[in-house]
Write a protein that binds this DNA or RNA. Structure first.
Length: 738
DNA sequence: AGGCCAATACTG
DNA sequence: CAGTAT
DNA sequence: GCCT
């Protein structure tokens, strides 16, 4: 069932693709320029002796404690010594820094000191004195000091404000007016035949007027008062359902037309296509409850209903999905009326999830991004790589109109924001468990209807203990958390974040480097002991930090698909990851490769021998970062790709999936993390085991839950069956964002 | 004091 | 085996 | 970090 709309979209897609192809004279050896052109140039010789000393000590340090039990108490001293140096040396090449003062300082106290203790007493002093100056230095340094995540975030939020301000809109409008005002070609009028009703339904706000006009250019009609035939109600200004309903005479949102937020329209513009309206990010906040029931109805009714509004989005790329897999959603859903276990899963999810990692209300995001829309290219770089990982408050979008302040439905919002920052801080600092504790506390607070003021009140909330209770009280009473301010000003953590942002660098490595005296990416690049992947990670630090617009993910995928099909007409692929969950942008590109009835060997051979070499020769694939070298094992290719003509490398993962394991792999590579973990937890509670190969039963576990038996395979191929066997109501990918 | 958020694949 | 990744 |  290929709708014409779909077809048009697809045609256009491939037209674009071929266009790109024609540009493709980008020979592979011409390599994209590295943002960092340093290399051999001014490579000073660092004082080897001192270096060696440091190295030695670093080794002591790192070998003394176990992972996760790190004792960085020697780090501060190193840092302060270096810092001292830096301050003195004005604009020294960072290279010089570590060699000057090699800190023959006294051995610190016994390594038994807890990291928390160390922070408590070493932090304030250090921060107070030297942080500001160093911060400034970091920023202005001519070296390639890439902004730390924190700085980046801050700055981009500043930027965002500018983007939304009036002058900018005018600018954009001007741009538009000058060249795009003439109606777009008929062929591109993808909104033809649609009738929009906006909420609020006026064009007072410039941003909205802009969108309305643009919608009209693209063929839509605007109903300036309520009338029959309206196809879409588009809610702007981040209004929730409740607020939106006030805009109607009957104080109720009329049924019938599709209710979406303005993000939908914006994405339609940028994709030049009518997007599927069912994605989470297009829902009007507060409509969840409503939607759930709708969905149920849909499921109980027939399929056409589900599909009816659809879904260029889904089919354009998920087209490859074997039909059997997607098709019987409704049936499956019907089968398990066992609501109890669904609750179980919900609980598990709740247990596990971090609310902080997701944008609460997608419409914020986008509104902030660009009132004038256009392709959502310049997303702020995520504070961290990984897709759902570290995204937090989508602060201040406000169009210059209404924006009533009453959107913060949770009285604890301020507390939550602060605690989430703490969680981020701890996660960037490598403290898994504290991070979890903070996130759990946040989750608990989210459910509270009342403002938690005092320590006593806080203590009554499950998940909040003594320490957190005190912090909450502090936040509420004085509006800030000293601990957080200290933490955020702490240069060590900025550097830590900076380093951990490098591909293939985790906490142990990052902190080792800091202990060795490295402070900038340049330091690392010239002096640190880097493996190949890390070197590439530094060269493409900024590339890999950037989020990838959804549309670009699709383009990469299309290129892969072309090569795949050329090699084997029956081979198939699905884009997984956050793309499959419907995200507007992704941290990387996950593509599952498979073929009906094919085993792993077959897929691997196809890919490794034909497709990947071909794509590499084309210059599309830039590097392999982690690839199987064995001929007879291995199931993935990790690397980087870039669109022809683009200098930006993207992280691309190709997963080779045997037909028999498609369902399990799909679950695994669709995520998100928390969803997967909760699903697996759920499985293990039922004496089952879920991994990317399949769902297994009769798993024996011994001491410490280690597995004794593998268990027997229950299901691997059919995604929905796995849900079913687990007793969980099937959730389409876009609902797997706990 | 020790678990909590799993279970694997690849690298060096 | 530790580290990093998914 | 919290909980047992």
């Amino acid at each position: 069932m290929v709708s014409t709309q779909e077809k048009i979209e697809k045609d256009k897609f491939f037209r674009d693709l071929y266009l790109l192809d024609s540009l493709d004279d980008d020979s592979p050896e011409s390599e994209v320029e590295t943002p960092i052109r340093l290399a051999a140039k001014a490579k000073r010789q660092p004082d080897q002796t001192l270096d060696a000393v440091q190295h030695e000590r670093a080794k002591q340090i790192t070998t003394r404690g176990k992972v996760g039990e790190r004792r960085p108490e020697t780090v501060p001293s190193t840092v302060s010594a270096v810092d001292h140096t830096l301050k003195k040396a004005k604009v020294p090449l960072p290279v010089d820094a570590p060699k000057k003062k090699a800190l023959p300082e006294k051995r610190k106290r016994a390594p038994s000191t807890d990291r928390e203790l160390r922070r408590r007493d070493s932090e304030p002093a250090l921060t107070a004195k030297s942080a500001p100056s160093r911060a400034r230095r970091l920023k202005t340094s001519p070296s390639i000091v890439v902004d730390s995540a924190v700085q980046t975030t801050k700055r981009s939020s500043e930027k965002r404000k500018h983007v939304t301000d009036l002058s900018n809109i005018k600018q954009r409008k001007h741009q538009l007016g000058s060249k795009k005002l003439p109606p777009v070609p008929i062929g591109e009028q993808m909104l033809k035949g649609l009738l929009f009703y906006f909420v609020p339904n006026n064009d007072i706000c410039q941003a909205r007027r802009f969108r309305i006009h643009k919608a009209i250019q693209y063929g839509a009609a605007w109903a300036n008062e309520w009338c029959n035939g309206i196809t879409h109600i588009i809610v702007c200004d981040n209004l929730d359902v409740h607020e939106a309903s006030k805009e109607f005479a009957c104080k109720e949102i009329p049924r019938g037309p599709t209710l979406v937020n303005v993000n939908w329209l914006i994405e339609c513009f940028s994709r030049r296509a009518v997007c599927d309206t069912h994605w989470n990010r297009f829902q009007v906040s507060g409509s969840e409850a409503l939607k759930e029931t709708n969905k149920e109805q849909q499921q109980h009714q027939s399929k056409p209903l589900i599909e009816h509004e659809d879904s260029i989005d889904k089919h354009a790329v998920d087209e490859e999905t074997p039909e059997g897999l997607e098709a019987n959603a409704a049936e499956c859903a019907l089968l398990d009326a066992e609501t109890e276990s669904e609750d179980e899963l919900d609980n598990a999810i709740r247990d596990v999830r971090s609310l902080g990692s997701l944008s609460i209300d997608p419409s914020f995001d986008d509104g902030a991004k660009s009132p004038g829309d256009e392709p959502p290219v310049d997303q702020e770089p995520a504070p961290f790589h990984g897709d759902g990982k570290a995204r937090k408050e989508n602060a201040g979008f406000m169009c210059m109109e209404k924006h009533d302040g009453g959107k913060g439905d949770n009285p604890n919002e301020q507390t939550i924001v602060k605690l989430l920052k703490m969680a981020d801080y701890y996660s960037a600092t490598g403290d898994q468990w504290r991070t979890r504790a903070y996130r759990q506390a946040v989750a608990a607070l989210r459910k509270e209807r009342r403002l938690i003021r005092t320590k006593q009140e806080a203590l009554t909330v499950r998940g909040i203990g003594d320490r957190l209770a005190e912090k909450i009280q502090e936040i509420v009473s004085i509006g800030k958390l000293q601990r957080l301010d200290n933490a955020e000003a702490d240069p060590r953590d900025k550097i830590l974040r900076l380093f951990m942002g490098i591909y293939h660098v985790g906490f142990p490595t990052a902190s080792r480097w800091i202990a060795e005296g490295h402070r900038t990416l340049e330091d690392l690049y010239q002096k640190a002991d880097l493996n190949r992947n890390q070197r590439i990670g530094i060269e493409h630090y900024e590339d890999f930090q950037q989020r990838i617009p959804r549309a670009e993910v699709a383009q990469h995928a299309a290129i892969v698909k072309k090569a795949l099909r050329a090699a084997d007409t029956e081979a198939q692929m699905i884009i997984g990851g956050s793309y499959r969950r419907g995200s507007a942008d992704c941290g990387d590109i996950d593509i599952l490769i498979f073929k009906k009835d094919a085993g792993l060997d077959q897929i691997r051979a196809l890919m490794m021998e034909t497709v990947i070499p071909e794509l590499t020769a084309q210059g599309f694939l830039k590097v392999a970062l982690a690839t199987t070298h064995h001929q007879d094992s291995g199931s993935k290719w990790h690397g980087a790709s870039a669109l022809p003509g683009s200098k930006t490398w993207r992280r691309l993962d190709l997963l080779f999936v045997p037909w028999a394991e498609l369902g399990a792999a799909l679950i695994y590579f669709t995520g998100n993390d928390y969803f997967n973990r909760s699903l697996r937890l759920h499985a293990s509670r039922k004496q089952m085991r879920l991994n990317q190969h399949g769902l297994y039963a009769d798993v024996m576990r011994g001491q410490g839950r280690e597995r004794i038996t593998q268990g027997r395979l229950l299901e691997g191929h059919d995604e929905k069956r796995i849900f079913e066997i687990l007793g969980v109501t099937y959730r389409p990918p876009e609902h797997r964002n706990p």
